[in-house]
């Protein structure tokens, strides 16, 4: 067990220090996330739509597209700097590697999402009435589900001729239930009044996270070794 944890910790710290030096993934997530939000504002005039109609879709679309590019960058970096080869040469437990990658990707995503959210708060005039505990819970659960799937498919897509195109092609349909639950849940939280129906979406998100985290944990080794 302690060997498992030390592999997880080593992978996590390696990813964080590589990111600290290059800042590729965070730059990708933040810049692309902000640009998606801004594009949304151009596409849907906020003056003509209620906040709860536009913000949930805008935020999650930004997170998804920015996140896919970010995870693609992370996997490409592992391929380029020999990180993957090093991992394959080591006798490290593949499940432990997955957990380490999962955690580092979650940290990158949550950090990038926080920056995008700050701008969104200002641009859409959100305040304490909207940014409640359930709001952040949905954000966390949605992000973990995204990362659980994305950590596996980032590696898969690197091995396809289509590379960065393959990642969204594979991920977006599989993420469909998570996106639906996250957007609907966020809309409920942002709508003034009761949070009726929120529990069902939270359960769906938690179930999604659990199923795909377990699947990723079990299948990541096969993908990594090919």
């Amino acid at each position: 067990m302690s060997a498992f944890l030390s592999v997880t910790r080593a992978v996590f710290r390696r990813d964080l220090s590589a990111e600290w030096r290059q800042k590729d993934v965070l730059t990708t997530v933040i810049m692309f996330g902000l640009l998606t939000v801004v594009t949304f504002v151009f596409a849907f005039d906020p003056a003509r739509h209620a906040r709860e109609e536009i913000v949930p879709g805008c935020l999650w679309t930004a997170y998804l597209f920015a996140g896919m590019l970010g995870l693609g960058r992370s996997a490409a970096r592992d391929g380029q700097d020999g990180g993957t080869v090093g991992l394959l040469l080591s006798p490290a437990d593949r499940g432990a590697v997955y957990v380490g990658k999962f955690l580092s990707h979650a940290v990158f995503m949550l950090a990038g999402e926080a920056v995008v959210l700050l701008f969104t708060i200002v641009w859409f005039d959100l305040d304490g009435r909207h940014l409640t505990a359930p709001f952040f819970l949905i954000l966390l659960l949605g992000t973990l589900g995204f990362v659980a799937v994305g950590t596996v498919f980032a590696v898969v897509s690197q091995k396809s001729r289509l590379r960065e195109v393959m990642l969204p092609v594979l991920m977006l349909p599989i993420l469909a239930p998570m996106v639906m639950a996250a957007v609907e849940g966020t809309a409920i939280v942002l709508t003034p009044g009761s949070n009726e129906g929120l529990g069902e979406w939270l359960k769906l998100l938690a179930g999604f996270d659990l199923v795909f985290a377990v699947a990723g944990f079990l299948l990541y080794g096969f993908v990594l070794e090919e």
Binding site: K159, P173, M180, L204, A215, L219, E226
Partner: peptide, 28 residues
């Protein structure tokens, strides 16, 4: 061999999503 492994993983993970989409049925 690489194609077979990557496809197998995708086929399994893709299939897992289907029952979850159906669960949304109870909500919507």
């Amino acid at each position: 061999d690489r194609r077979s492994v990557l496809a197998a993983v995708t086929g399994i993970i893709g299939w897992l999503g289907v029952p979850i989409v159906y669960l949304g049925n109870r909500v919507r």
